[in-house]
């Protein structure tokens, strides 16, 4: 495969200036997250930019995982449980989004049926609709379908929030993955059909492996949407997630801020981790086997 190089016309000086400009622009962000992480390892918040207030400790993190958050009136907070809950919601959203999008996206890209372009436009319209604007209707359905058994209702609330949150992500994901399917040459699909494969088999064994980077992309976006969601989780989920936990403690009068900083850092972690781990896959746009 050919290595792609930039056009070799830019000067070194301009490049340095540009890099500095980019650094300057992202300085508030870097500072913001840097101070948060630093505070989580300190007995006092360092957000006042005073380095003398930084006294290193890892007690915040130990307390966090012991679930001892004295400020909430003696109620022990099970942070490990919240992390698992958050992960269940995030992975669930990612799973539902991927499952629906790879099927719908393939159909939108490759199948010719009546009303296809209308559906595509409606999907786009749906994407423009904010989730908050729908929440009352979504809540009414939730109330109407909620099982009366409390344990069952708890499980149901997980399923419901996953599907409801996924529904908000699906329109964009369909458009995104459709673009990936569009880029697979028809000839590859034809070749598989000529080789005797059924449409379903072509989709599963030939098309899906070729849109892997796209699947990774929508999975990550969906995971992060589930991970960071507050409104839907707060409205429907009986249990707490990291987001609702931090949100409910942030305004408490005796909130122990360095500990919350640790919780915030923990909450940030998967976002950073996910991007680092999948960066290569996201950038990889190999549709090898096609030369020319």
């Amino acid at each position: 495969m050919m290595q792609l190089w930039d056009v070799e016309v830019k000067s070194r000086k301009i490049e340095i200036v540009l890099i500095l400009a980019v650094l300057l622009a992202s300085l508030p962000l870097i500072l913001n997250y840097g101070l948060l992480i630093l505070s989580s390892f300190s007995t006092e918040m360092v957000t006042n930019l005073d380095p003398t207030s930084f006294r290193p400790t890892i007690d915040n993190w130990i307390l966090l995982f012991e679930g001892r958050l004295s400020v909430t009136g003696g109620v022990r907070e099970d942070v490990v449980r919240y992390t698992i809950n958050t992960a269940i919601v995030a992975l669930g959203v990612a799973g539902v989004v991927v499952l629906v999008s790879v099927m719908a996206g393939y159909a939108m890209s490759r199948m010719n049926f009546k009303g296809r372009s209308l559906i595509m436009q409606l999907i786009l319209l749906l994407h423009a609709f904010p989730g908050v604007a729908l929440i009352i209707a979504v809540y009414l359905i939730f109330r109407a379908t909620l099982p009366s058994d409390i344990e069952l209702a708890r499980i149901y609330s997980f399923a419901y929030v996953i599907v409801a949150r996924a529904a908000l992500e699906i329109p964009m994901s369909i458009w995104l993955i459709k673009g990936f399917f569009d880029r697979v040459p028809w000839e590859v699909e034809w070749a598989a059909i000529i080789d005797g494969a059924s449409r379903l088999r072509v989709w599963r064994e030939v098309m899906l492996p070729m849109v892997k980077p796209g699947i990774a992309a929508i999975a990550i976006f969906a995971f992060l949407a589930g991970w960071e969601d507050l409104i839907y989780v707060r409205t429907f989920l009986f249990d707490r997630t990291l987001a609702t936990y931090i949100e409910s403690n942030i305004n408490v009068e005796f909130a122990y801020m360095p500990l919350l900083a640790a919780a915030g850092t923990l909450y940030l972690l998967p976002t950073i981790l996910f991007f680092i781990l999948t960066q290569r896959l996201l950038l990889e746009t190999s549709t090898g086997g096609i030369k020319g």
């Binding site: 040459p185 590859v188 034809w190 070749a191 080789d195 190999s286 096609i290």
Partner: peptide
């Protein structure tokens, strides 16, 4: 029928062996 395309239309995620074996596997 066997069909050979201009852009070859090989399955990029399969090794050459599996590409050739694909019609028989089906």
């Amino acid at each position: 029928v066997g069909l050979v395309f201009q852009n070859y239309a090989l399955y990029p995620h399969m090794k050459v062996y599996d590409n050739i074996a694909f019609p028989l596997k089906i």
